[in-house]
Amino acid sequence: MQIRDYLLRRLALLPVIMLGVSVIVFTLTRFTGSPVGIYASPNMSPDEIAALEARYLLDQPIPFQYAAWIGGLFRGDLGWSGVSVAPVTEVIGLKFAATLELAIAAGLIAVFVGVALGTLAGVRRNKAPDHVARLFSILGASTPTFWFGLLLLVPFYLWLDWFPLGRSTPDIFSSIIHPTGMYTLDAIIALSPVAFFDALRHLVLPAVVLAFGAMAIIVRMMRSSMVEAMSEEYVDAARAKGLPNKIVIRRHARRNALLPTTTVIGLSFGFLLQGAVAVELIFRWPGLGQWVTSAVLAGDQATIMAYVLITALIFMTVNLAVDIAYAYLDRRVVLGG
C-alpha cells in the first residue's frame, strides 16, 4: 500500500476512533456520579441544585447529555473547568503548551543520549561502556519517577539553587508575549536572552527527570539493535572495502539499528506527555498533569474528559507518525490497514 493511501485511510478512521473514545470516557465519568458538585456550593438549597442540574442538562437521560456534550465539542465548547474556574477550551491550550514544551525537551534529551549511549554500548560490547550502559538502563527502568525527581531536587534546588521550581521568574517574563505558550520558544521570538536562560533553568531539571525512564528504554533497544547490526554481512563487506570504522558504524550499522528504535522513540514521546503527572507535581510545572490531578481530586468531569480525549488524539497521531517514518526509513516495509 502506498504511503499516501495508508495515511488517508488512517485519517479517515481517526474520527471513528475518537467517537468511540468519547463514548467510553463519557459513560465512565457519569458512572462516578453527577458532576453538579463541581458547580455547586455548600450553602445551596435543593431547589438551587435542581436548577443547576437543569441548566447543565444533568436532569436529562445520559444519551441526551452525551449528545449535548458532543454538540458542544463540535462548537469548541468542552464545558466548564471547575478547578480553573474558566472554560475548558481556554485553559487546555495553555496547559497543553506547558506539557508539550516539557515533553519535547525530555524527548530530545532521551533520544540524543539514548541513541549515543546505546550505539557506544553496541559497538563496545561486553566492555566498560557496555556495562555502564546496561547499568544505566536498569536504573532508568526500575527507578520511580517521583523518587528520582526528589533525589535531584534536594541538591540542585535546595542546596545549590541552580534550577528553580515552576516555569519562569514572574519579574522576567512579565513583559514577554506568549504566542506559542512554550516559554523557551516565546523568549527566542521576543529576542530576550535573559528570558530564554531563565526558562531554560526552570526546564532542565524536570526534563531530565522525565527523560530518564525513556532514555533507559532507548539505550536498551539501541544496544540490542547495534549488536545485531554489527554482526551482519553488509558490515563485514563495508569493512572489507577499507571504509573507516566510523563510517561503517554511522552510515551502515547505526542507520539500520535505528529502524526498530524508531518505534520505541515514537511511543516514548506519547508516554512522556502522559507520564508528566508526577514530574509536574514535584516541580510545580503548570501543565496537563497537574491540571488533571486537581480535576480528579475535585471530581471535575469536564476537565477529565477533555484530558482523556486530547491524550487519545496524541497517541494516535504519534503512532501514525511512527508508522510513516518507519516506512520512509525502510522501503521494504509494507504498510497495512
Results as ranks from 00 to 15, higher is better:
W147I: 13
E53T: 08
D47H: 11
S268T: 12
G275F: 01
T261P: 01
G275R: 09
L108N: 04
D161N: 12
P206Q: 05
L108M: 14
R239V: 00
W80C: 01
I282Q: 04
D186L: 00
L288K: 07
V16R: 00
N245R: 03
A321T: 14
L158N: 14
S192F: 01
R250L: 15
M182A: 14
L267C: 08
V219D: 03
S81F: 08
L152P: 05
N245A: 09
V113C: 14
W159G: 12
G289W: 03
L11N: 04
F196T: 00
V235A: 05
I282N: 06
E232R: 13
P164T: 04
G149K: 00
L335V: 15
V277E: 04
G79K: 03
G181R: 10
L329E: 03
F269I: 09
M182W: 04
E232W: 00
H178D: 03
Y6L: 11
F148V: 01
L158Y: 14
L150E: 06
V23H: 02
Y56E: 08
M215A: 05
L152Q: 10
L165H: 13
L272A: 12
A195H: 05
I310C: 06
I92C: 02
M221P: 02
V36L: 05
Y234T: 06
A12R: 12
P155M: 12
A257K: 02
